[in-house]
Design a protein around this nucleic acid. Structure first.
Length: 846
RNA sequence: GGGCGCGUAGCUCAGCUGGUUAGAGCACCUCCCUUACAAGGAGGGGGUCGGGAGUUCGAGUCUCUCCGCGCCCACCA
């Protein structure tokens, strides 16, 4: 065929075909299809504030492989792409990249440009400037992602894109909030909240990470104030002496005999001299420290539990900026207030140092602090330990745990054991979902509050935006019924200053991508979706929150299958470096070196849920496979087109096709259970065997124009290209274009019946289970072995080959006799029945 | 502390409901420039399946236990 190049090459095929696919709309979604004809994917919107690395290529390739399979299988694939540019991570990224910080009190400067290099001290900019710069940075990053995804060959419909900060997402997110409010699932409360003092925002339970940090046990002497033992010392150990002034009680386990007599009496704190009750609670651990702990408002989440369950007073000293408040807390005597004056306004760290000195001076520090390391809660991307402050926050009330667990069981997890992560998380839920962030680059709450005559916001009478106003920014838009100049005035209104956490929006990705609020017809065609591909570390956030929102809004799962991908490690089993650019795992560099198909081949080796090692070997193998496909295809096509009426008839050909039929069945079954790796593992060895054995065996007939051979070669090639197409979209498309019309990616997935009709199968395996192909290939291999052992070329002539073996195998060999003698250059082939094993004696011509 | 996963040739991995001498690719060694491909081809050596115990006629494959690695969760005094 004339379209076959003389020297086929994989260089540059990415650019050529991605342009062609874009021009042809090869992956365009046809929305006229109905739900049962559609395969819809809730694509993970990558965090564009992150850095591209080869790990991204891995999991996104997995999804694309699955998408391509279902498309060929006849489904209309809905494959959108989002960019997660919303939220705290983006802000942090932008602050670091540009060296800026947001100060909402500053006026907008339309001419502000950040310096080329980030300055040492951050430049303070207005909120509009800050948001603008966030948008600018994310756009640049999104472009880089788009380039990479396109080059990698993701069959995304690029007309179906969204960003989690874009207008459509904001509107959907705000509408979702209003719906929750309407249904009573959301409430506002003043509550102790985990707080990042650097970013100055609340952080949700789902965003926590423990870090092991150095600390020290300080053994402090309290004094008993009441009861029989008044005046005696009481020793309490703490890692946070700076919170001593916030101590509201001391607590021991109710069964702890050492402290039972003290319950109900009071103690006096050292230095600050506050009287605090001695209480009992089963969360107190007799094994830790001295077995009796001080309860502070608030040192950790256990303090919150104690404070809540024991109805203790509040004595907060840590402010939102991580410094101690200027006002001494209640309950201190005059000396105590004096002591507090020395730590007021200091950072937590400075305060700790000073409190220890004060303790020592007062003789209340028993011994020296004992250094330890212990786990401390951080925001997962933060650098300072979280503090707990009280603040007014919006919460989503979780559905009952039983309902959530039932949803988890209803969902098909791939692999199944990932369900446990979800169940662990659900079972460990504490409190409700705080969706409030005191940040700027996020979706604002569509809420205002009336301002009373004294100028105070009335927080329990929120004014909600109307659905048709959305999206609103309450800091610039006003509520219906008010004039703009009434903002922040007595009798006027004020906007809710906060934004929603990123998951409050990301939990709506099916609704955003499927256009729930503005295209119900589309939404009905794609929801609930078929597939949610995602990483396991965000089961507790993204997957969980999406299930919650769908449960509330639709009383259903948001998707039927969750395909959970593993991590990518570098060859030393360490996590991949995050540095982009010149690192060895920079995806663009890897693609340039090996080709997109090779990267996809490597990625395809990672089963759902399994960690994947970054392995240049596999990339090399993938590249080799791609090149082999080009060359083998060129060779097969070089024999010319068979007569249209030609059908495979020779036993060897029928045997090959029967085996191909098996491969189709296995690959199809594997794909249907999302085991794309197995599908590839079945196809690949068949292909190599086809090249090394079958093609060698039929060369002679093919050169002679034998119709059976030519038909078999072409049928097999067509089938192989389609079996490989989900994995190697470029090279298969390239070859397909040489001799077929249209795109291989729009062709149909092969079926056994096309290659191996029943009649042919029975003809192919007539020899007691020994098929002709196996035997012919085995004999050929023995002949090659003899030539190699004799250090001869494979073209060396064989004078005589004697094949010993069971009659059934020899009969199978007879069916392909001339193919074997031609391929092996055997002058005389003799069969000797009787041996239990197939062996070949080869006599070479000198 | 609880849970999940993993531990098979130097490396990356297959080995289904237990059953003949444990497989593949890469790497390594030897050979072959053969008219699809030398960024190729043909062949070869190499593992007692993390350790131990058990069930069984028989275990890489089931049970228990220990060791190592990774991850998730957990109330940080």
């Amino acid at each position: 065929m004339s379209n076959v190049p003389d020297k086929p090459s994989i260089e540059g095929i990415e650019q050529r075909w991605r342009e062609r696919w874009a021009a042809d709309g090869t992956y365009r979604f046809d929305r006229t299809k109905t739900r049962d004809e559609i395969y819809a994917i809730d694509t993970p919107p990558p965090t564009v504030s992150g850095t591209l690395h080869i790990g991204h290529c891995c999991s996104f390739t997995h999804t694309d492989i699955v998408a391509r399979f279902w498309r060929m299988r006849g489904k209309e694939v809905f494959y959108p792409m989002g960019w997660d540019d919303n939220g705290l991570n983006t802000e942090r990224r932008v602050q670091l990249m540009l060296g800026i910080a947001c100060d909402p009190s500053l006026p907008y400067d339309p001419d502000f440009e950040p310096p080329a290099a980030p300055p040492k001290d951050p430049i303070h900019v207005s909120r509009p400037n800050f948001v603008e710069l966030c948008a600018r940075i994310t756009e640049q990053l999104e472009e880089a992602y788009f380039e990479l995804w396109s080059t990698l060959g993701l069959s995304v419909d690029w007309t179906q894109t969204y960003t989690t900060i874009g207008e459509h997402a904001r509107r959907t997110s705000q509408y979702g909030f209003l719906r929750l409010h309407e249904q009573g699932h959301v409430y506002r409360a003043d509550s102790p909240t985990l707080w990042d003092v650097d970013m100055r925002t609340a952080v949700a339970q789902a965003e926590l990470a423990d870090k092991e940090v150095a600390g020290a046990y300080h053994r402090m002497r309290f004094a008993l104030a009441t009861g029989d033992r008044a005046g005696e010392p009481l020793y309490i150990e703490t890692t946070r002496p700076e919170l001593l002034a916030a101590c509201v009680a001391v607590v021991a386990h109710p069964d702890d005999a050492r402290y039972q007599p003290l319950f109900g009496t009071e103690a006096i704190t050292p230095v600050f001299n506050a009287r605090v009750p001695i209480v009992a609670h089963e969360l107190a651990d007799p094994e830790k420290g001295s077995g009796i702990a001080m309860i502070c408002t608030f040192g950790d989440t256990t303090d919150v539990t104690w404070w809540r369950e024991l109805s203790l007073p509040v004595r907060v000293i840590v402010e939102k900026d991580g410094r101690l408040s200027s006002q001494a807390p209640a309950g201190l005597d005059e000396a105590g207030r004096g002591a507090y004056g020395e730590i007021a306004g200091r950072t937590v760290k400075q305060a700790q140092r000073r409190v220890v000195e004060l303790l020592r001076e007062a003789g209340c520090l028993d011994g020296e602090p004992r250094p330890i390391t212990h786990p401390v809660k951080f925001w997962e991307n933060g650098t300072k330990p979280l503090e707990i402050v009280t603040n007014r926050q919006w919460f989503i009330r979780y559905p009952p745990k039983e309902d959530l667990l039932a949803r988890g069981r209803e969902l098909t997890w791939r692999p199944d054991f990932m369900r446990v992560r979800y169940e662990n998380w659900v079972n460990g839920l504490i409190g409700d979902w705080n969706i409030t962030r005191q940040r700027f680059f996020g979706v604002p709450f569509p809420v205002w509050y009336p301002v009373d005559e004294d100028g105070n916001a009335i927080h329990d009478q929120p004014i909600l935006a109307a659905a048709d106003q959305l999206p609103v920014d309450p800091s610039s838009d006003g509520p219906d019924g008010y004039e703009a100049d009434q903002r922040d005035k007595p009798g006027g209104f004020t906007g809710d200053p906060d934004v929603m956490d990123t998951w409050a929006t990301s939990s709506l990705t099916p609704q955003i991508a499927g256009h729930w609020i503005d295209d119900p017809d589309l939404f009905e065609r794609v929801f609930p979706m078929d597939l949610r591909p995602q990483a396991h570390e965000i089961i507790r956030t993204w997957l969980f929150s999406t299930v919650v929102r769908s449960h509330f809004e639709f009383d259903s799962l948001p998707f039927a299958n969750a395909a959970i991908s593993g991590f990518v490690f570098d060859p030393d089993r360490k996590k991949l470096s995050k540095s982009a650019g010149n690192s060895p795992d920079d995806p663009n560099a890897v693609i340039t070196e090996f080709g997109s198909d090779a990267v996809r081949y490597w990625a395809a080796g990672g089963r759902p849920g399994m960690d994947v090692a970054f392995d240049r070997n596999q990339l090399k193998v993938g590249r080799r496979l791609s090149i082999k496909l080009l060359n083998a295809s060129k060779f097969v096509l070089s024999f010319g087109e068979p007569d249209p009426t030609a059908a495979p008839s020779q036993p060897l050909d029928l045997a090959l096709l029967a085996r191909l039929g098996d491969v189709i069945d296995e690959a199809t079954a594997a794909f249907e259970s999302y085991d794309y790796t197995k599908a590839l593992e079945r196809t690949e060895p068949f292909f190599w065997s086809f090249c090394d054995d079958y093609v060698e065996l039929v060369k002679s007939r093919a050169y002679g124009g034998d119709a059976s051979a030519l038909a078999t070669l072409r049928t097999t090639l067509s089938t192989l290209l389609r079996l490989f197409a989900p994995f190697l979209p470029y090279v298969t498309e390239e070859v397909w274009s040489w001799w077929q019309d249209g795109s291989v990616h729009q062709s149909s997935w092969p079926e056994r019946a096309e290659v191996a009709p029943e009649s042919a199968e029975s003809a192919a395996a007539p020899h007691d289970g020994f098929d002709v192909f196996d035997v012919a290939a085995a004999v050929l291999a023995d002949i090659r072995k003899a030539k190699t052992a004799a250090k001869k070329s494979l073209r060396a002539d064989v004078e005589r080959a004697v094949v010993h073996g069971p009659e059934a195998q020899l009969a199978a060999l007879e069916a392909a006799r001339s193919d074997v003698t031609e391929a092996g250059r055997v002058a005389e082939l003799v069969t000797e029945p009787g041996s239990p094993e197939l062996t070949v004696d080869v006599l070479l011509v000198d």
